[in-house]
Simulated scan of single mutants.
Amino acid sequence: MPKIHKTSDVQSENIGDGTLIWQFCVILKNAIIGKNCNINCNVFIENDVFIGDNVTIKPGVQIWDGVTIEDFVMIGPNATFTNDLYPKSKNTNFILKRTLIKKGASIGANATILAGIEIGENALIGAGSVVTKNVPSNTIWYGNPAQQKRFNDNDVKL
């Protein structure tokens, strides 16, 4: 059974056993969250979101419709996702762009992930990076715009 702090607004019933949801989170009705996740304070999770098992999401993260996060992913504090390449208020021509964060990836604090990006397995995105294109598995990227700096071959593969 999940443990949900009393100050959070959790509308979804699709939350796995052992998941912790801390203070002041909002999780909308159709979101799916796996087992043994740690959802820190002040996190917002929209409806069309899938989060796998053993995921850590640090404070201040918003996960918008169209984002899929696989197992064993770590999302650092205030990391930002987008789901529209051309955002406008009251946009009637909104086109949802799906984003995929694959198993074992880590995204550093304050990184920005543009809409429609795929981050490969065990990839590492450095703090403050702006990711504008797909990231291959087992690589380390950082900067603005983020660029591949080296291979991530020392990490434990999950």
Rank of each mutant, 00 (worst) to 15 (best):
F94W: 10
S137F: 01
D153C: 01
Q148G: 01
P59F: 14
A115I: 09
W22M: 14
I51C: 06
I95C: 09
G18H: 13
M1H: 15
T99H: 00
G108Q: 04
N47H: 08
V131M: 02
A31Q: 11
I4S: 11
D84G: 01
N47I: 02
K58C: 08
T139R: 00
Q148V: 01
A115E: 12
F72N: 12
Q11F: 14
E13F: 13
S129P: 11
K97F: 09
I21W: 07
K133S: 12
V73A: 05
V67N: 12
I117K: 03
S106H: 01
N154R: 14
I27G: 05
K29F: 04
I63T: 01
Q148W: 00
D65I: 03
D53R: 11
T68S: 12
P77E: 09
D84F: 03
I15F: 09
E118Y: 07
S106D: 01
N14I: 14
V131D: 03
R98H: 06
K97T: 02
K6R: 07
I39R: 09
A31M: 08
N78L: 15
Q147T: 10
I33V: 13
W22Y: 13
P59C: 14
D84P: 00
D155S: 12
E70T: 06
L28W: 15
S89E: 14
W22N: 11
A123Q: 06
V130C: 07
F50D: 09
G126H: 04
T99D: 03
